Amino acid sequence: MADFRRAGRVGRLPQSFFAGLDAQIAHARASGVDVIDLSKGNPDLPTPPAIVEAMQREVARPENHAYPSFRPRPSVLAAIAERYRIDHGVELDTTTQIAVFHGSHEALMAGILAFADPGETVVLPDPAYPMYHSAALFAGAREVSLPLSETDGQPEWEAIDGLESARVLVLNYPNNPTGAVATGATFERAVSVARRLDALFVHDFAYASLGFDGGAPLSALASDPGAERTVELATLSKTYNMAGWRFGFAVGNASAIAAMRAYQSHAFSTIFGATQEAAAVALAGDQSAAEEIVGTYRARRDAAVAGLRDAGYAVHRPGGSFFVWIDLPDGTDDAAFAARLLAEHGVAVAPGAGFGPRGAGRIRLSLVHPIDILEKAVARMGAALT
């Protein structure tokens, strides 16, 4: 069998961080370890019944069995625009300011690959979701790190004061992995810095609904009237427990949305019409189920943080997302600690270094289990410190 050389754009990619964690967990389970997996943000709760019922109806409709149009369905465009108007006070033009994708992962790729040519600069937060780096590598772009404060998770803007230009500036709030929530001042500064750099500001708003202490998280578009510089990426995965449904969208600057739509139409394809109609029901319907989901994660957050602190861990209390960011004792190798925690105590977490240099010496765990399972995991983690 021939052994084909990979193209450079693929050959320079590292192993997927989360695929590596999956392999370690599979090995542990094959060895007989009872693993509680807190390593990934895969929601455990079911999709609300009204959304499932809408999908079932739409799947049965023959008009949804053919290739869908490249143009998103009017129903889902209207629902996205109305959700933004109600939740954030942001007005969107449904014809020019919304693009839809098979999940916000594709939107993120479009947000970088549609704008950064090889050698051009992309500013990425540190720590950050690993796929930001993958997108920059695919583009052949030059990465510049924007450190996030270890105390409040806001950008340390002075780190890029000397940077003269960039194509894209990426931020993510509520933040993965730290759980920090953005302030209005952070978004105002981001728009100002993007203007100075002549960059597109891409805000990854994947955890848009998951704010715990002071209301819903802020949209970056609320700080950029007219969407002069901003595109915001969102997903239904966390808000409505629709991770497997693969539906996300981008909203904001019209020229950027047009470029992202062009990328989507060539790199991927159209989105199943039934999924679009079910997404419209999720966004436009009664939001009480989404509010209950927030309450569930808030209760899990409170239980996990209290238990971890009692066990002796230095924990950052997350203001949003469904992750908990933990400082390990000084000098602790986070990858080695995570490996030992898995092999000896049956708890899988994500080593912080996988999110960038600022993640070294930390671990991230997710709140995607009921409280009794989280308490069991915390007890095991407590034993790992003794």
Rank of each mutant, 00 (worst) to 15 (best):
L137S: 08
M109F: 13
G140I: 04
V52F: 02
V33A: 08
E63G: 13
V59P: 03
E120W: 01
M131F: 13
V76L: 00
A79S: 12
V76P: 00
A66H: 15
G32P: 14
D117T: 06
G140L: 10
L113G: 01
S69H: 05
P127E: 10
V35P: 05
T94W: 08
A110E: 02
F138N: 09
R73Y: 07
D44T: 12
D117F: 09
R85N: 07
A78Y: 00
I36E: 01
S39R: 07
G41S: 12
E120K: 04
E82R: 13
D34S: 08
R29S: 10
N42G: 04
E53Y: 06
M109R: 11
V100M: 03
R61K: 15
E91F: 10
M109E: 10
G119P: 00
T95Q: 15
P48W: 09
T94E: 08
R73M: 10
L137T: 05
D37C: 08
P118K: 09
I51K: 01
T96Q: 06
V90I: 14
P130R: 03
P125R: 09
L45F: 04
V122K: 03
P43G: 04
D87Y: 06
I36V: 15
V52D: 05
G140Q: 04
A139R: 15
H102R: 14
G103Q: 01
I51M: 07
G41N: 06
V123S: 04
A60W: 02
S104A: 11
A107R: 02
K40A: 15
A135D: 06
D87S: 15
H88N: 12
I98R: 00
E91S: 14
Y84T: 02
H133S: 13
F70Q: 10
A30G: 11
A139W: 08
A107E: 05
V123F: 09
R71W: 03
S75T: 10
P74A: 07
M55A: 15
A26N: 11
G140M: 13
P49W: 04
M55F: 10
D126V: 07
E53I: 01
L92M: 07
L45H: 02
Y67V: 13
S69I: 11
F138I: 06
